[in-house]
Design a protein around this nucleic acid. Structure first.
Length: 621
DNA sequence: TTAGGGTTGG
């Protein structure tokens, strides 16, 4: 018995089918045929979508059928040339001295794949259709006939074979898409094979690209860019990432530039040209499709091997020599034993880093007050901008006068109306210094201006004028020294007048601790605060990293926020200790010192763990 | 009503 679609109702009424060479104009017939050409559904200029299918049967006559429908989904589901169709109630008419079929009232269609001997399971767009045991025979006979008499298979090839064929149908999976311009659209696809010659990369802004960027990056060498044009833009836009596609009549074009220096680097371009000639278009295939299932199997195995290669690369190629160094003469204690023991105690553990928080590593940088032991977030740029804006007002800058210990200058910024900046150059030994040795007090400057000035001057103190006095706002950095931005504790500081800086004007250099002291500021120190989850064969243990974090990473927490190289170093270290993609078996074993301590949380006693005396080193073992 | 294949563009 033929396999019918789940939930479909099947009637057994017997129909008569007319050979194509016996069809007569003006009448309605039922026909069977092999698809020898088709155009996937496309939008007509009228109200409907249309599908053009040309079929042939054992009479060796052809019938071109124009099928229209308001709804694309109700048109016969044809994927490939060579498939078998059964049409009920096709109206035959004449056009250009040729008969053609049109769908008329009561039209219905079934489509079967064309593979000899495969199950005769119909694709139908309606839930209720007729299927008689005779149909199975009809389909199989037609398949047999087509396999002997027709050479109708479209050149469906893999990406690795494109060089030999210029136009082909491509079965693939969509991994990314992006708008290019009004008449073209980019789709990024793969079929698990690798193109033999270099292929082009269509430039689009990263933000415009839809799809998993990390995945696209990882599969880069296996992904091709296909540029689709005109009428195909609309259908490409609606495609879902991850869906399986049959792109009909892709043009692989070897691009060799006329310029001599470029001619040596030819690359392959992929176009789906506009229009519907040669059946150009994109068909979305369901996951139940047998071709798709074959493709899926290939993609899964390729993906797994890529993952293995990637994690191997991270561990062994990118950072081959990173490891953790702890007290080497201490015995290793299993995590289960650590967890069962009383605090306080010190241990050396050997475990893998399963995860860490925060994943956004820059968020791990906090400000710590040693006096009141409070932790604060580092103010973000927007907060600083707002404070600076409020500290800037024209009147306070207008009446500025130099004093014996600093010399003042006022600028009018051209880009914004009535905005003035005052810079007070603090003298040392009663004389002005070179910029690289100079402390300036900045009044009315923006964040951007602070960034710029901090490249030229040794130290900057942002100030605001209150009743003629220059004062410090402790909600923003009180001192900027290059990439080091110094903050003070709002709770513990007792701010004094900037006049106090005068006492430092005989010093040799501008020392942040000294400046904080005379200004009554309790300085905050930058620390990394991370939460690590370790695992070994015996258990799982959470530990903090903060007091010993700078020693651990060999990175200054106070400079990292403004230093790309330090940020990159931190990211690389954490990628090595805890490789992404969560394959714990690929993570390195880490030696680490931890100490336990008692703490209370909401009145409840608990034991916490902190990493200490451990550092990232180049492993020369 | 619409579109109605014909050896191929960016």
């Amino acid at each position: 018995m033929a396999a019918a679609r789940a939930g479909a109702r099947v009637s057994l009424q017997k129909y008569t089918y007319t050979p194509i060479d016996q069809l007569k104009e003006g009448k309605v017939f039922n026909v069977y045929g092999v698809v020898i050409f088709f155009k996937p559904p496309y939008r007509s200029k009228g109200t409907d979508y249309c599908l053009l299918v040309t079929i042939m049967d054992q009479s060796e006559a052809k019938l071109k059928c124009m099928l229209f429908s308001e709804n694309q989904e109700t048109l016969p589901i044809v994927y490939k040339v060579g498939e078998i169709v059964r049409f009920h109630r096709v109206k035959i008419q004449k056009f250009n001295d040729e008969i053609q079929g049109i769908n008329s009232g009561g039209f219905s269609a079934l489509v079967f794949d064309g593979i000899v001997g495969s199950p005769v399971s119909p694709r139908s767009t309606s839930k209720c259709y007729n299927f008689h045991p005779d149909d199975e025979r009809f389909v199989e006979v037609l398949r047999q006939w087509a396999s002997k008499h027709l050479k109708v298979s479209a050149p469906q090839i893999k990406i690795s074979d494109v060089e030999s064929v210029q136009f082909f149908d491509l079965l693939c999976q969509l991994v990314g898409k992006a708008e290019v311009d009004n008449s073209s659209y980019l789709i990024k696809v793969w079929d698990g094979t690798k193109i033999s010659s270099p292929s082009w990369n269509v430039f689009v802004e990263e933000a415009a690209l839809e799809g998993d960027q990390a995945l696209i990056h990882q599969r880069q060498s296996l992904i091709i860019d296909v540029l689709v044009y005109d009428n195909h833009v609309e259908s490409a836009k609606s495609l879902k990432i991850g869906s399986y596609l049959l792109i009909h009549n892709v043009h692989a074009k070897l691009h060799t530039s006329g310029k001599e220096n470029e001619a040596k680097n030819p690359h392959m371009e992929f176009h789906l040209h506009g229009g519907t000639c040669f059946g150009r278009g994109i068909t979305v295939l369901p996951e139940s499709n047998s071709d798709v299932q074959g493709l899926q199997r290939l993609l899964v195995s390729v993906h797994e091997s890529l993952d293995n290669i990637a994690s191997q690369e991270i561990i062994t190629t990118l950072h081959p020599q990173l490891a953790l160094k702890a007290q080497q003469d201490w015995p290793i204690t299993p995590l289960a034993t650590v967890l069962k023991s009383k605090a306080p105690h010190k241990y050396r553990i050997r475990a893998r880093l399963k995860s860490y928080e925060p994943q956004n590593l820059l968020q791990s940088v906090k400000l710590h007050c040693v006096k009141c032991n409070s932790l604060h977030d580092v103010p973000d740029e927007d907060t600083i901008k707002t404070v600076l804006q409020n500290n800037s007002d024209y009147d306070s800058v207008a009446g500025i006068q130099s004093t014996s210990w600093y010399q003042s200058a006022v600028w009018n910024t051209n880009n914004q109306q009535n905005r003035h900046i005052a810079i007070h150059f603090v003298k040392r030994h009663d004389i002005l210094q070179n910029p690289e040795d100079t402390l300036i007090m900045l009044q009315g400057g923006t964040l951007q201006e602070i960034y710029k000035l901090s490249k030229h001057f040794d130290s900057i103190i942002p100030v605001k004028a209150i009743q003629g006095n220059l004062e410090i706002d402790i909600s923003i950095p009180f001192l900027i020294q290059g990439n080091r931005w110094h903050y003070g504790c709002t709770r513990c500081s007792k701010i004094k007048s900037t006049e106090m800086l005068r006492s430092l004007s005989q010093e040799i250099s501008w020392n942040a601790t000294e400046i904080a002291k005379v200004l009554g500021i309790q300085p905050l120190s930058h620390v990394f605060t991370l939460h690590f989850t370790f695992v070994d064969e015996t258990g799982k243990l959470n530990a903090f990293l903060w007091n010993y974090s700078e020693q651990f990473f060999h990175i200054s927490a106070s400079e990292i926020l403004l230093d790309n190289k330090l940020q990159e170093k931190l990211f690389n270290i954490m990628d090595t200790l805890c490789p992404p993609r969560k394959i714990i078996d690929k993570s390195p074993w880490l030696d680490c010192c931890i100490k336990s301590y008692n703490t209370t949380n909401g009145g409840k006693r608990q034991i916490c763990y902190e990493i200490f005396d451990t550092e990232v080193v180049e492993d020369d073992l």
